[in-house]
Structures are given as C-alpha cells and as structure tokens.
C-alpha cells in the first residue's frame, strides 16, 4: 500500500474543498470497496477525505418522496420502517447485496460509486481498459461468466455490481450531488454510464462532486419484488437480478418499472418491457412474453451466454413473484 494523506471533514463544504485541493484525492466512507482496491494496487489515492462525520445520514420523508442521506448505511436503510413499508423493493435489493458485515459498513453513496468486480479490473497484472485505459480488455477473450450481455463495448464488458442500484433505477430515484459549482439532481437512470470508448468513467459525477443523498419519489406501486440469481445463497454477485415495481388494479397493469442487474455496465432499465406490460393483464402469459421482450438485443459471449436464457427466466419469475 502506498502512503497517503488522511483527512477528516465535518461539513459538505469542507469536504468538497478538501477534494479539490489535491489531484488524486478521493472521498472515503465505509471503505468496503476502496480499501480493497488500495490493497490490490488498483486504486492509489494520494489523499483520502473521510466524510463519515458529514451530516448526511438521515432518512426523511415528505408527501412527495423519501430522501436517504448518502452516508446512511446499507443495513440501516434496509431496516428503516419508511423503506420497509414504502419501498420494499429497495429493502429487498439491499438485503440481497454483499454480506451482513459489509452492509453494516457500506454507505448508500458508496454503494452507488462502487467499482466493478471484474477479475481483470481487480488484478493489476492483467490488461483492463477501465483500470488502465488502452491496455485492452482481458475479459473479452478471457473468462467472462459474470460479464455484460447488454450495452457492452469493444473496450469493456464489465458489469456494475450493485443490487441496490438496480432497485433505485426502477424506482426512478434521483441522485443529489454537491460540488464546487453548486448542487445538482441527476435522474438515477442517467447517473451511470455505458462503457463506450471510455470505460474508465463509471458515471456522470463531475470533478469535485459529492453525492449527498438519494431521493426516491413517492409511487403507487402495489407489487414489488427483487429477484437475484447467484452462485451461492449469500455474498455473491448477481448472475442476473431483476427489480420489478408494478401498479396493478383489477388484474390490469397500470404502471410498470423494471430493471436488471448483472447484465450491463449500469443498472439496465427495461423500458420496452415496461411499455409492453402497461395495459395488459398481470398474467403468466403476459409475463412470459414480457421476458422475451426484456432480453431482446442481448449479446452473449462464450461464458455468459446463459444469461440470456437466465435473464428471461428471471424476469418472468420476478414478475410472478411480485404479483403473488
């Protein structure tokens, strides 16, 4: 591990200023991902700015929605009565992520900004365009069981590892940020990027910006479910996962939001599937057709081709579970 400077801040303003002061500075909150990356030599921040004392841990609500502070812990959010009662999809997705120990350390903001777990990204002896632009993609011709079937590029086929983000994408959450140029609100679906020619960029956060919170607008979804398929029952990333939020009245789908995890560089919203579902009967037949729509356009490689079939099965099953 390379020596680095460590500073603590207690206000958002100071945190942003501290970050701008040193090139190569990074915020640290739970550190469940960043510390690993530093140990492996994948990340080498010159300065760490500890933001854990910032007043960003509250979970509050008004008639229009729920605001979750960026420093609220994954486990706190999953257990919070507001979330459990009104956003069960989010609670389920949080509980599906990582392990209990990690959820007790990891923050909401950190969860959004976690890096891919692609083995090539995490091994500094291997080529990886995300870690070292221009070095190539080791995964593409190598081992890519966990990798993307949607939105991948020649440069990168990595996936975003978060479960929580899949739910937030379906719930049309908004990322609140603060930075040197002021505050911004970014729609969750627009927050993360596809790899394209610049896989080193995971998201659209501007230099010097800090995530201050996540706003989840109030909704009328009466059927919600998060389904995660993985290689072991806990502490494993999704092979595929599906977040489903439906408003069903008298057996008819009035509104539908779906997104998938484990399939793309960002939480993958299933817009066409949503459009297909609205106005139809919430039935097994509808869901089977919807699942086929969901996986249209998916491209598999040698080790991850199964995700297309599994994705279909998962979308159908998640929809069925949601209305059960």
């Amino acid at each position: 591990m390379i020596n680095f400077e460590f500073v603590r801040t207690s206000t958002v303003k100071n945190a942003i200023a501290a970050l701008s002061k040193t090139p190569g500075a990074q915020f640290i909150a739970g550190g469940t991902n960043l510390v690993d990356l530093m140990k492996k030599g994948v990340a080498a921040p010159k300065r760490l700015i500890d933001i854990n004392s910032l007043p960003l841990r509250d979970i509050t609500s008004d008639s229009k929605g729920i605001l979750i502070g960026a420093l609220a812990l994954n486990s706190e959010v999953a257990e919070h009565p507001l979330i459990k009662n009104k956003l069960s999809l989010l609670a389920k997705a949080l509980d599906a992520g990582a392990s209990a120990q990690l959820r007790n350390m990891a923050t909401i903001g950190g969860n959004i900004l976690q890096r891919t777990r692609c083995s090539y990204f995490n091994d500094s002896t291997m080529p990886c365009n995300k870690r070292e632009p221009g070095s190539g993609c080791g995964a593409k011709n190598g081992y890519h069981r966990m990798h993307a079937v949607f939105g991948a590029s020649d440069k990168c086929i990595a996936v975003h590892p978060s479960d929580m983000c899949v739910a937030l994408a379906a719930l049309d959450a908004v990322v609140h940020t603060a930075g040197p140029k002021g505050e911004r609100k970014v729609l969750f679906a627009d927050f993360h990027r596809l790899p394209g020619d610049n896989p080193e960029l995971d998201h659209h956060l501007q230099p010097g910006e800090l995530i201050t919170g996540i706003y989840v607008p109030a909704n009328s979804f009466n059927k919600q479910h998060y389904l995660k398929i993985r290689d072991r029952a806990s502490y494993a990333f999704a092979l595929v996962s599906v977040a489903v939020a439906l408003e069903v009245t008298d057996g008819i789908i009035k509104n539908a939001k779906l997104s998938m995890g484990g399939v793309a560089h960002k939480p993958w919203r299933l817009i066409s599937t949503e459009q297909f579902l609205v106005g139809k009967a919430a039935s097994k037949e509808t869901f089977t057709e919807a699942a086929a729509v969901a996986m249209t356009g998916a491209v598999g490689l040698t080790h991850n081709r199964f995700k297309i079939k599994m994705g279909k099965a998962a979308v159908r099953e998640a929809l069925l579970q949601a209305i059960r």
Partner: peptide, 21 residues
C-alpha cells in the same frame, strides 16, 4: 485464464465457499 495462465478468482469474494445460507 488460459491466455495469461493466471487464476482469476483467487479470493473469497469470487471463489465461492458455501456460506451459512
């Protein structure tokens, strides 16, 4: 990875030992 002759899951996150669940 047979292109590089290198283990790609040599950690407890990616090499799945069964958990309680």
């Amino acid at each position: 990875d047979h292109h590089f002759g290198r283990y790609v899951n040599s950690n407890f996150g990616d090499y799945h030992v069964p958990v309680n669940a």
